[in-house]
Amino acid sequence: MVVLTKRERIKRTATILFAANGIRNTKIEDIANVLGMAKGGFYYYFKSKEELLEEIMDNSVISRKEFLKEVGDLDVSFEKKLKMIISRRLDLKDDRYNLFLFAKIYENGEINLTYDDYMKRDIIFSEFLNNNKENIKEEYRDQIQKIRSILSSALTTLLLFLINQTGIEVTGEESYRKMVEKYLSIDIDKEIEMFYNLFFKEIVKEK
């Protein structure tokens, strides 16, 4: 089991509380109380809730960029690469709480300036598709941005559906772990195949 630093522990706890209760409804005091620390202890690591949220978003951008670069460099079929991308977007486990946060932000429509800025910078998947245009049917090659937006929304909707299928309402870290444990019993490979056939098969050029 990975031992988190205090800074990482704050980010984990805050992310789950942001997702469970909403960003606006989660106060610094709430985060500090769960961690058993004084409010001043929080300010030792972060100047504000906004700075904390920005770091959470930045970490996600960096992680996704590294992942897509690794996938892009693999000597496997374009179909296999796309299925790996779908898998990662549905790969909700204990240490992927950021994914849970983004899904809940989408579900709640809780968009703020920090999240808007994140979405503007989240052009990584568009770049991936543009770099693989030769594998996309010609009639779809000028629709990359639209495709990215549709696929991103559809994947998030599927993730939320699967989360709701666990029947566990997340209110904090303990219930988050229980939800993830139930989530891991889902046949994700089946969901990947379904999503690929519904949303990718039509645009991918046949070999």
Rank of each mutant, 00 (worst) to 15 (best):
E134F: 09
I23T: 01
Y43E: 07
R177M: 04
I192P: 13
E169W: 09
I28Y: 00
I85R: 06
G167N: 08
T157Q: 14
D116P: 00
T157F: 06
N135C: 06
F161C: 08
D73E: 15
T171L: 13
Y106M: 10
E202L: 08
E51R: 07
I10R: 15
V76M: 01
D117F: 03
D30W: 07
K120W: 02
E66V: 10
G22W: 00
N108Y: 12
G167Y: 09
E70A: 06
R177Y: 10
N164G: 13
V34Y: 12
D75G: 02
L68H: 09
I111G: 02
S87Q: 09
L101H: 05
M194A: 06
S175W: 02
F100E: 07
E191M: 04
L53G: 00
F125Q: 12
M57K: 08
R64P: 00
I62Y: 13
L198F: 02
N164I: 11
K65E: 09
L158D: 08
K207L: 14
E127N: 11
V61C: 01
I203A: 12
L129N: 02
K81A: 00
L92F: 07
E134V: 12
D117I: 00
Q143M: 14
S175C: 06
N33E: 13
E202P: 00
I192D: 08
G36W: 03
I56F: 09
D94E: 10
N197H: 08
E79T: 14
L4T: 03
D75F: 03
F199A: 12
L162W: 05
Y97E: 11
E169A: 11
K47E: 15
D58Y: 12
D58T: 13
L92Y: 07
